[in-house]
């Protein structure tokens, strides 16, 4: 008799499985989970903590808050950040002060670990939510984060 009960059970479990997929088939219109990516660019909103690439925000006076302390450069595990800096004499106080010449960021080497942003004491760099990073040439992935002619915001100290 177990022969027949096996057949019965077998068919029953198969039909149970078919009912699951069948249910999704009937609800396929509203159930589809596909994101039609390039089409939904306008509505696609990344989460605000999403790590796309490192950027350096500048305000309207073309000022950033990077003091050139190099903590991000030290924190980076892959050497994705290079800071070219210089010391200039502050005219008001007469002290020597460190300023950045170029804050170079190699996106091609970056693993998006977030240690640099975490290490930054003056919140000079932050994550942008841009994820469309493809370029035609690898060299374009190396970016200078501070805009030309920008300077450090007054009052931001190391």
């Amino acid at each position: 008799m177990s022969y027949f009960s096996e057949i019965y059970d077998g068919i029953k479990t198969l039909l149970t499985g078919m009912s699951v997929t069948g249910k999704y088939f009937l609800n396929s219109r509203k159930g589809a989970i596909t994101q039609q990516y390039p089409d939904n660019r306008d509505t696609l909103q990344m989460f605000d903590r999403f790590r796309g690439e490192v950027v350096m925000p500048h305000d309207e006076n073309n000022e950033h808050s990077c003091t050139g302390c190099q903590k991000c450069e030290l924190a980076c595990p892959n050497g994705s950040i290079e800071i070219i800096w210089d010391r200039v004499v502050d005219e008001e106080t007469g002290k020597k002060k460190k300023i950045i010449d170029q804050h170079i960021y190699h996106l091609g080497m970056c693993t998006q670990c977030g240690l640099c942003v975490d290490a930054c004491p003056s919140d000079a760099i932050k994550w942008a939510q841009n994820f469309e990073n493809s370029v035609y040439d690898r060299t374009q992935l190396t970016r200078v984060l501070n805009k030309p002619g920008s300077k450090v915001r007054a009052g931001v100290e190391e």
Partner: peptide, 10 residues
């Protein structure tokens, strides 16, 4: 198409 509809795709 049928496969897609079974699998919640388009």
């Amino acid at each position: 198409k049928v496969a897609a509809w079974f699998q919640l795709r388009l």
